[in-house]
Amino acid sequence: MEHKGLDAYGYFEREGALGRVPAAFAGVVAAARERTAEAYGQRLHSAYLYGSVPRGTARPGRSDLDLLLALRHEPAAEDRDTAEVLARGLDEDFPVIDGVGILLYGEDTLLSEAERYDLGWFLACLSTPLLGPDLAEHLPRYRPDGLLARETNGDLAAMLPGWRDRAGAASTPEELRRLTRGFSRHLVRTGFTLVMPRWGGWTSDLAESAEVFGRYYPGRAAQMRAAAAVALDPVADPAVLRAYVDDLGPWLADEYAARHGTKTPRKSPEGS
C-alpha cells in the first residue's frame, strides 16, 4: 500500500524532521542555526529547513541546503544582503552542500489570508522548525484538494515568458545546468500537483511525482520522467530548456488552468 503523506483523517503529515537530517549534514545544519541567529538577531521570528536535508534524502556534495526565514517585519534590502552573505559563507565552508537557498518573508505575509494555501501551507507542511516559535501553530490543517493545487502552482503560464528570456540569455554550462535543474524541479512539482487531488496524497520525491503524474497523463509520462532525472542530474543542454518553454511548459500551464484555474494574483510579491 502506498504511503501518501497523509494522516488517518486525510490531512497532510508534516514532512521532514531534524531527527532525519543525515549525519553528513549535521554540521552545516548546526552552523546554519547558529549563524542565522547571529546574523538576524531580534529581526528574526523563526527559521525553518526544507527540502532533501530534513527529509533525510540529501546526497553529500550534490544537494543544496534550503532555509525559510520568517522575519518580524517585511524583508528590506539589508535583510536580503544579510541572506546573501549567510548563504555564501555556508556554501564556502561546507563542501557537503552544493549551494544554499534562503527564502525571506515577513511573519505577517506567511500568516496572511492571501498566502494561506501557498506560503502558509509550505511552512506548515513542508518546512521543519529550526529556530524560534513555530508559525504552523497559527495555520490550519491541509488536504490535497483543488484549492491547494490552484494556489501552489497555478501560475505557470505567468512564469513562462520569464523562463524563455532566461533560457535565451543563458550562455555558460553553469548557467544552463542551473536553469535546467530549476525548471525541471518546477515542472515536475507542477505536474504532480495537477494530479494531486485525484491521487489523494502528497510526495516531494521527484521520481515518484513523475510516476504518479504519468498514471493520469500517459502521453506525457516519458517527458515528465526525463524532467525528474534532469532535476537530479542537471545538464547543460539548450535543447532541454527549449523543450520545456516551447512544449511541456505551455501544455502543462493550459491543462492546469483548465482543471484548477489560475493562482490568485498577489498585490506585491515579497521574498527572495
Score class of each variant (00 low, 15 high):
residue 142 Y to L: 09
residue 191 G to M: 12
residue 131 L to P: 05
residue 188 V to E: 15
residue 134 D to H: 01
residue 218 P to V: 08
residue 172 T to K: 08
residue 115 E to P: 00
residue 214 G to P: 02
residue 157 A to F: 13
residue 204 S to G: 10
residue 201 G to K: 07
residue 217 Y to P: 02
residue 122 F to N: 06
residue 172 T to R: 12
residue 160 L to K: 10
residue 210 A to F: 03
residue 169 A to R: 15
residue 192 F to N: 04
residue 205 D to C: 05
residue 162 G to M: 12
residue 140 P to L: 09
residue 112 S to A: 09
residue 186 H to W: 03
residue 153 N to I: 00
residue 110 L to K: 01
residue 189 R to F: 03
residue 151 E to W: 14
residue 122 F to P: 00
residue 189 R to Y: 01
residue 111 L to P: 03
residue 215 R to E: 15
residue 220 R to S: 12
residue 180 T to N: 04
residue 171 S to V: 15
residue 125 C to D: 02
residue 151 E to C: 08
residue 167 A to F: 07
residue 144 P to A: 05
residue 201 G to C: 11
residue 179 L to I: 04
residue 139 L to S: 01
residue 125 C to V: 15
residue 200 G to S: 10
residue 165 D to N: 04
residue 116 R to H: 08
residue 194 L to D: 04
residue 190 T to W: 11
residue 205 D to V: 07
residue 228 A to M: 01
residue 223 Q to R: 15
residue 162 G to N: 08
residue 122 F to V: 07
residue 140 P to V: 09
residue 174 E to C: 06
residue 172 T to P: 14
residue 127 S to M: 07
residue 159 M to E: 13
residue 157 A to W: 13
residue 205 D to W: 00
residue 224 M to W: 07
residue 137 E to A: 12
residue 159 M to K: 14
residue 166 R to P: 07
residue 165 D to E: 15
residue 112 S to Q: 02
residue 223 Q to G: 07
residue 170 A to T: 02
residue 210 A to H: 00
residue 153 N to W: 08
residue 206 L to H: 12
residue 143 R to D: 03
residue 218 P to Y: 02
residue 125 C to L: 06
residue 144 P to M: 05
residue 214 G to S: 06
residue 208 E to P: 02
residue 233 D to W: 05
residue 162 G to H: 08
residue 137 E to P: 00
residue 142 Y to R: 01
residue 217 Y to T: 03
residue 150 R to W: 13
residue 117 Y to C: 06
residue 152 T to R: 13
